[in-house]
Design a protein around this nucleic acid. Sequence first.
DNA 1: GAAGCGTGGTC
DNA 2: TGACCAAGCTT
Length: 372
Amino acid sequence: MLDTKINHQLVEILQTDLLKWFEKAKRDLPFRRTRDPYFIWISEIMAQQTQIDTLIPFYNRFIDSFPTVFSLALAPVDEVIKAWEGLGYYSRARNLHQAARIIVADYDGLMPDNFAELIKLPGIGPYTGGAIASIAFNEPVSAVDGNVLRVISRFCNSFADIGDAKTKKQMTRWIESILPEAAGDFNEALMELGALICTPQSPKCLLCPIRSGCQSHTAGTTGQLPVKKKKTKQLTRKMEVGIVTQNDCLFFVRRPDAGLLSGMWSFPIVETTVGNGQDIKKKLGENFPELNEPIFIGTSRHVFSHIIWEMSVYRFNLDSMVSETASHPYFISALGAPQSDHQTAFKALPQIDDLALPVAFSKLLALLKNAD
DNA sequence: GAAGCGTGGTC
DNA sequence: TGACCAAGCTT
């Protein structure tokens, strides 16, 4: 149970000293140099489950490619996904693109200026809606992310499970009850404190501007907070990957439009129990009636949020296959027979950059290079 | 309420 | 290495 019945003097510290510290200590971030709700929106979507240092180069490239909501709405979705390549959680990019089209179609290209409208857009939930509304429009709403849950848990010495939806609602309501005039700055300040000072491990309490009001600091319980249920361990899956090469071309397939890495480009990959390359060879038979035996070129382990792939990678070289003309029969059959749930394509090495390739696969290119 | 959904960093 | 975590949202 969240106990926020702390006295007015402590709330005063939270409001005043935190804002004072933020003004002085806040990082100079590209999206802090603007109040344009479009840029705030892009940055907040990228910030979901992603550390700020990681997203900055993505952010700069993204707004360079899509400087307005119109340019984003009019872009092919594959270009938007490509700009997201390497950032993960790719449904964020699809939702961003979809939302841009809605904003152009239904809002004359103007970002909705309030929380209630914002959270109707795909990809914008309670946190992101609160962040955009408060930062870009100074609407008096909170923006409760993992940082805020941690900071408030510690400040109030609350042992309520922050993974519990009820706890999040209580904190949201409580913060909104003490929200100062500068709502956006206050929300950002809470997050900045969580990112720089009130960190999950080894919090820098000696440098904390609100230490004197922190109830867990007084109680000596900061190290135990916040309380959070453990995630279940990822299941490991044995996979076989087939890299089909022909001269300077590699063979890719597009993944199904639902599930893990949906719609992204991929090397052919199957789950296996054996692990000798025959399972992926059989799968490749759909596109290549004749194949040489698989050539093992290495293993790779990739950790996702909820599963782990242990990949054995095999190369199938078509250079030596009988190819009577320059028309490359295997090339034609691959392009001419797309499956119902995925597309296929040969791409010459220099053109790989056109496809949005997840890290799980792009890192396999090193194995191919080493094999040569 | 719980599970699905990426990647990189840290200790 | 493994465990944990990061400015969450959707189904």
